[in-house]
Design a binder for these strands. Structure first.
Lengths: 161, 161
DNA sequence: TTAGCTGCAAAAGGTTTGCAAATTA
DNA sequence: TAATTTGCAAACCTTTTGCAGCTAA
């Protein structure tokens, strides 16, 4: 904590609004509210979750505005979204280089640092000419807790010869 | 090719139908047709694509039957589905150990062998206790051809301190 | 002033579901 | 016979879009 702040008074807010104005965009009251909610909330949010948060205090802000604001933020590189398997996309600030591990069993999301996939990314680049965009995908699997349990018995039912 | 075969006369068909019957399931005519189409078609198909293929010859088979059959096949481990970013899920036979690389720019899907992510999977298991289910996610990025082009300038717009 | 944004409501896309009738083991 | 599947249609969920009015630069 860097001292007492009023609600929504995050130092990153102005920088983000400036970024939004970069290509002729506007810093509207709605965008200010949406970005504040994003800065104040949990690290990963779906558009609907963010909409719920915002609309709790500002019921007059339309859900489509949330989607459009997130889209604009995404275009400016301020946020990124990832598809964590089934269900809606999650958005988060583009602040650290990381990767998402999603447990297929309990849905838990583990964030691992960029160093974890460095070698993997290098291999794909060298062998396949493929540049990984790590933030935009999630690695599916089972977390430590769930891997210990019986369910989802990893069938090896290969078909064919 | 192992010699001339009549349409849909794939040797894997019976094995798959048997698998479907394993837990009290039924080998219906519709399932037989859907599985045949799956065996005869391209490696990756969306449910809608498979429905179109099936319905071209059998317009009386409902799309929901395709979804339900794919779901049953998935449960039995005969097929697997992956979410390749935006858009519908793709299904494919659970036959080889591989990973999907999806180009965010042109949508091209590259299949790479399991050996490509072996070390990565080992690292995640050792450091995070996470067991990767590689078939169920796609690595997003840009393929060699698209990486050479200008578009999508990989902004580094990190927010924060 | 004028391009860009907003709210609303409707549509789109992909997938799931309730149900009565048909089919399978 | 009893349980499973099917086709149909409607619902569902997430996201996008058209448009007239509003607002920021």
């Amino acid at each position: 904590m860097t001292g007492a702040r009023r609600d929504g008074d995050d130092p990153r807010l102005e920088a983000i609004l400036t970024a939004l104005c970069a290509d002729g965009g506007r810093a509207t009251v709605q965008r200010r509210i949406v970005v504040s909610a994003l800065l104040a909330g949990p690290r990963h949010v779906t558009a609907e979750e963010l909409a719920a948060t915002v609309q709790a205090r500002h019921p007059d802000i339309a859900t489509s505005t949330i989607y459009r604001t997130l889209e604009a933020l995404d275009r400016q590189g301020v946020v990124q979204h990832a598809h964590l398997g089934h269900g809606p996309a999650v958005y988060h600030l583009n602040d650290t280089d990381h990767l998402h591990l999603v447990c297929e069993s309990c849905g838990h999301v583990i964030e691992v640092p960029g160093s974890a996939y460095e070698a993997f990314a290098r291999l794909l680049a060298e062998d396949y000419g493929f540049r990984v965009a790590p933030h935009h995908f999630a690695v599916q699997g089972r977390c430590g807790a769930c891997a210990a349990e019986p369910g989802l018995p990893q069938r090896g039912g290969a078909v064919g010869a």
